[in-house]
């Protein structure tokens, strides 16, 4: 393997290390809310610094490769996609930390029954993250497309939950604080799903050289 390819492999490995951390942060933060686990929520907050550190290291590696190796074609697309995916992962890490904060706040409050649709939304958002990252690792355009298809479902679930929580608050004004924390959790899960969608779009660019952002499906290929 050439030196450059070894460096690319290192970049990918670093990105996978970060994605594993972020996936676990999302999982733990959601479990923190659903199971009222203070331990899991605290783990998320403790690991956030490592995610931030990895973001800096990955950007540094990617920019060095751009500057020193002048990559072209698939290599260029891989590195630019890595920079953007890195950014999305770091944001997902932040959002998980927010969810963990909500989990800690909700510990002190009595449970709202039923726990709206949080496990459901969280399950879908996590599966989008998993698929987007698998699509990146396996350069799988079909899997990336399947992530894009799920984004609307998450948006619809969020809207439905918002309505449900609003009517809950009208009926139970004494439980507005819990409802607001749950609202924030749902909002953050929906944002995580948005970042998973961004990653899937970056994977499509990397694999096929096509830009599908902002529903721009008609723009098929670079320069065509």
């Amino acid at each position: 393997m050439r030196h450059f390819e070894q460096e690319l492999e290192k970049l990918k490995a670093k990105l996978l290390e970060m994605s594993a951390l972020v996936e676990s942060a999302i999982y733990r933060s959601v479990q923190g809310v659903v199971e009222k686990s203070e331990d899991l929520a605290q783990q998320v907050l403790r690991n956030e610094a490592r995610v931030n550190q990895l973001e800096i290291e990955i950007d540094d590696m990617a920019i060095s490769l751009l500057a020193l190796q002048a990559p072209l074609a698939i290599d260029l697309r891989l590195i630019t996609a890595a920079i953007k995916i890195n950014n999305d992962l770091e944001r997902m890490g932040d959002l998980s930390a927010s969810i963990a904060q909500s989990a800690l706040a909700l510990m002190r409050e009595p449970v709202i029954r039923p726990m709206i649709d949080i496990p459901h939304i969280a399950g879908l958002a996590q599966s989008m993250v998993r698929k987007a990252l698998d699509a990146f690792v396996n350069r799988d355009a079909e899997m990336a497309r399947s992530v894009l298809a799920s984004d609307d479902a998450v948006d619809n679930m969020r809207t439905a939950s918002f309505h449900e929580l609003m009517s809950f608050m009208e009926k139970n004004p004494q439980q507005i604080p819990q409802a607001l924390w749950l609202l924030s959790v749902i909002r953050n899960l929906e944002r995580i799903a948005d970042h998973a969608t961004n990653i899937a779009e970056d994977v499509l660019f990397m694999v096929k050289g096509i830009d599908v952002r902002h529903h721009n499906e008609e723009r098929t290929a670079v320069n065509q």
Binding site: P71, A73, G209, V222, N223
Partner: peptide
């Protein structure tokens, strides 16, 4: 040129420009 170096159409071209 942009296409040749960003997203070439042929495998041989991709292999050459990426070394």
């Amino acid at each position: 040129t942009r296409r040749i170096f960003q997203n070439p159409g042929k495998k041989e071209t991709e292999d050459y420009v990426t070394g």
